[in-house]
Nucleic acid binder design. Sequence first.
DNA 1: GTCTATAGGGTGATAGAC
DNA 2: GTCTATCACCCTATAGAC
Lengths: 210, 210
Amino acid sequence: MATNTKDRILDSAELLFAQQGIASTSLRAITDHADVNLASVNYHFQSKDALVQAVLNRRLNPINQKRMELLHALLHRPDGVPPTVEEILEAFYRPVTEEAIKTRREGRPIVALIGRMYTEPGELLASQIRAMMSQVAAGYLDALSIALPGIPPPILFWRLQFSVGVLAHTFGAMHLIEGLARGRVNVNDSEDVLRQMIAFAAGGLRSPVQ
Amino acid sequence: MATNTKDRILDSAELLFAQQGIASTSLRAITDHADVNLASVNYHFQSKDALVQAVLNRRLNPINQKRMELLHALLHRPDGVPPTVEEILEAFYRPVTEEAIKTRREGRPIVALIGRMYTEPGELLASQIRAMMSQVAAGYLDALSIALPGIPPPILFWRLQFSVGVLAHTFGAMHLIEGLARGRVNVNDSEDVLRQMIAFAAGGLRSPVQ
DNA sequence: GTCTATAGGGTGATAGAC
DNA sequence: GTCTATCACCCTATAGAC
């Protein structure tokens, strides 16, 4: 556990948001779990909304930065070879998947929060997600249009959104998928999950346009 | 608007759950919107949890029944021709998509609730979804294993979940997708959305297994 | 920076009259 | 079946002492 109050609040908020959802997690539950005073949340952050924003930024900004770095590296290789669809998808999926492994190892299953954020209601949240994702989405759309010159842009736009859906649902509904699997697959084998997601989305992106 | 109290409560609850989420919709907001008395919610239903369950059952049971009918018709055609992957996907996607069109025409954009339910937190909700979906998932998994004999069962299981993710994200994050699209696609053209989802998921399901 | 105390309001659920 | 009134509790946010 972190030693300073601000980080303790962020850690506890993140965990409880992931377990119970944002709306049904009270500031009291957060400060109790973090073992800090209730008023400290309003001192370090100004409101619950601002706390939500800080929790998401802390986790997603590094992920999105990593995504952009990986994409840039793919597009500017010394040998000039253009990236494959699979390589682009891996650059998009891997940073989240690695965060999932790392946080689960630390006993902090926060992936559900990342998977759920696209669909959590609330206009403030939606505009924040839009702001964080629009640049990333534009970059990946450009890269995919190079790797898949035969797919018309509007169709490629849809298929990128569907690829995001594959990721969001896999992490957001992991507990449900685990229940339906009845041991047929190991949802904790993150490298396998990553491989399955990439193969599926690559097939979807390449699907013939009728 | 319905004339009897019970249906008025269900209608209002469904709409507000879709707009604001389940946790942040109070019984008072529901009864105010439905223009009925607060106590009537505890008379007709016993608790907020039971109301949530009733709202989801009313909308999802017909959808899942239709899915099973369509699947059964595909598997028992007079000519005995086995269904294609696209036909199986259409049987799964179309009942939800048609409900989306119908309810939007009635000014009741409740698709977001259907798209979101897989990832809304809460053990009670999760067990209900699992109960409703396990039979449907099993039926579609069987059908897909006939249409795609070359795909090993565990991989097919993952790919069915990814296909659910495509649907759930498209409807659950439609407002976000619309914002990112900036006019490049028309999210209200439901037949086009359906066609795009089917083409993507079919490509994903057929993707080569390495 | 951190605490206590509290303002001011919302919450689900129920008892009991009609 | 429908109402009013109310219980017992939870909520976010802040004022003001230390």
